[in-house]
Design a binder for these strands. Structure first.
Lengths: 355, 355
DNA sequence: TGACATAATGCAAACGGTTGTAATTCAACC
DNA sequence: GGTTGAATTACAACCGTTTGCATTATGTCA
């Protein structure tokens, strides 16, 4: 039923009575080949169930027809929603999507320099990755175009990127709670990740902060409070590792102080879920006793009926990869930074405070 | 700072004063090269920041060093949890992971024959894909090894696969509800997907059912009820498209009949969330008025405190890719079907029925 | 010390495409 | 009918590795 080896361009050439070069041109719909022979070749290719050997084409053209996507844990719903947008575009293109999950610090150190190579990919999409100073060296020296989605470092404006205005988002989210009548508003966010890399201690000094979205959202929070004349209390601030459980414990503590907040703004939906859990454990009902608001609007937010500030996750992936494909074809052009809008989605975890 | 082109094996050879062949052997830690020269070559390679050109290596060896993963919507939490397991293994190997999202029927028709090619991948992992009869033709003719994770079709025992015993899972899940004292137990599951492919109507006749996990879990449900002497009522059965909203509507209807169930077994966690939502909307409190139990134990299940039957999603990905790597190296061997265990996880959405 | 086994390296073909350039065909025109 | 230029096609090098085989260097033993 099947031949020993898959058909090559030479097999087709022999049958068609032409040379491999002509077959190649015919297959790539070059105008340099007569319509008649092109059809003949195409027909033979079809019959032979021919499909071009990617490795050979890659070697020959110097293009890889692959784009690399670097993500941290892609089980995070926000990350996988972004990936979904990337896939939606890429599955209709000739590009392969190769995934690199750089989660552990060990992978990370060899990660970027290993991935950003023209022998491997034509372009890279870096999604929601915390970036340390020494990474930037590799980015600057990258031979392939890079697009950042949810860029975590303000120093990287030299690259294309898709971001949101986290400060504004945090500001508007907090404003909504204030408008509801809350004045005791807690904030629970995630800490700057400390990647332990002893050999770069010095470099780290230059860039001591790895800016996270959480931090920016907190800035917006403070701005909103200030404008409303509400003092900012350290008692109403909780910071820990990213995650459901961590946020739960932080909220648990915050809700047990003497004068607990009547509303909590969590830096992400996942963390908001932790807050909800803690509140329930303390017998508080939501939203009557405590308003909770998140950020992202991941799928589960709808399930939990969580009020949250939506960001266009899917869209960010779509736009990001479009930018990248463009950067791959155009040689030189200006770098583009697209800021996607956010939107408040009101569900059932927020209400005016009890009087 | 950087050379015009990335260093090749020839550059190294020239500097080291040897031939490319020797460099190749040195780099691949062949024993055929003297320790001394090997070290010298390695050092030069390091200095030149050499990294092998994958395309060339692929063309030369005939191996692609890539494995293809075919998934439907990978935003589904259960799918992405499985993928996570795959990645955990692959990121420590020399294999690239290329993702193919075959969701729409259009992509599907060209999908498998396009993907399962030795020029593209060394092996394929097919995860949670509904399979129609005509797909099987491509699987049987595949030149690359295939491993199914969460295989959806009983005809595919000729391939390696990682599955769970859905009948048993459904059985035990239902048994738990019975043990709690429930006798009015509803089931909400998802329907056999109808892939509209007019040209294959005839073939479809031969295999009219596309078996889904949901169906098997329902079998287990029926078995448990029968053994307990509980009659099976069509009023307590709901079937619709997979999804949160669909399940919510089904549950909404089921809970409004004259003698509604006191417990509902949903075929997946996502669907269980829909049931919970419907119950809340009807003013029923959980678990007092209604017990709800799911299946899968996705991350959100913990957040929702959902009682559910856990399957080892991450593990399925891990084991699946291990099987595949093995199949790629061993030429011939028996096909392996691994059945992973399930486990009841009791949280807060189940309780004895009110008396 | 010469013969011989063995270790180390060189040589060159192959993998399957692409593409610049040369060669051929063909039609049109004078 | 020969000339010319455009349209086709052939030719051959090249992309960067790997690998079987030939060759040379090294060491062993009688």
């Amino acid at each position: 039923m099947s031949n020993k080896h898959t058909a090559t361009i030479r097999d087709i050439a022999q049958i068609a009575g032409v040379t491999p070069g002509t077959v190649s041109r015919a297959l790539n719909s070059s105008t340099l080949v007569k319509e008649e022979t092109k059809l003949r070749i195409l027909k033979i290719a079809e019959e032979l169930d021919y499909s071009p050997n990617l490795a050979a084409r890659r070697l020959s053209t110097g293009k890889t027809f692959a784009i690399g996507v670097v993500v941290p844990f892609f089980t995070r719903p926000s990350v996988s929603a972004r990936l979904d947008g990337v896939v939606s575009i890429l599955s209709n293109s000739q590009y392969d999507l190769v995934i690199h999950d750089i989660a552990s610090p060990k992978q990370r150190s060899i990660g970027f320099q290993d991935v950003l190579r023209p022998e491997r990919i034509d372009g890279a999409l870096i999604i929601s990755m915390p970036i340390v100073h020494e990474d930037i060296y590799y980015f600057n020296n990258s031979k392939v175009p890079i697009v950042f989605i949810d860029r975590k470092n303000p120093d990287l404006t030299d690259f294309d990127s898709i971001i949101i205005d986290d400060v504004l988002g945090g500001y508007e989210t907090t404003q909504y709670l204030i408008k509801l009548g809350h004045r005791k508003i807690g904030f629970i966010g995630d800490i700057t990740e400390e990647l332990t890399k002893p050999e770069t201690d010095i470099k780290k000094q230059e860039n001591p902060f790895m800016f996270t979205s959480s931090r920016d959202r907190y800035k917006g929070y403070k701005k909103a409070l200030s404008e409303a004349g509400i003092p900012i209390s350290p008692d109403y601030y909780g910071e820990g590792q990213y995650g459901y459980r961590e946020a739960r414990e932080l909220a648990f503590q915050m809700l047990r102080i003497d004068d607990p907040p009547t509303a909590i703004f969590a830096a992400s939906d996942i963390q908001a879920f932790g807050v909800i859990r803690a509140a329930r454990r303390l017998g508080l009902s939501i939203p009557e006793d405590l308003s909770v608001i998140g950020f992202d609007d991941i799928q589960a937010a709808e399930l939990m009926e969580l009020t949250t500030t939506r960001q266009l996750l899917f869209e960010s992936g779509r736009k990001g990869v479009e930018l990248l494909l463009q950067a791959i074809s155009d040689d030189h052009k200006e770098h583009i930074n697209i800021t996607l809008p956010t939107e408040l989605i009101i569900r059932n975890t927020t209400a005016p405070p009890k009087v």
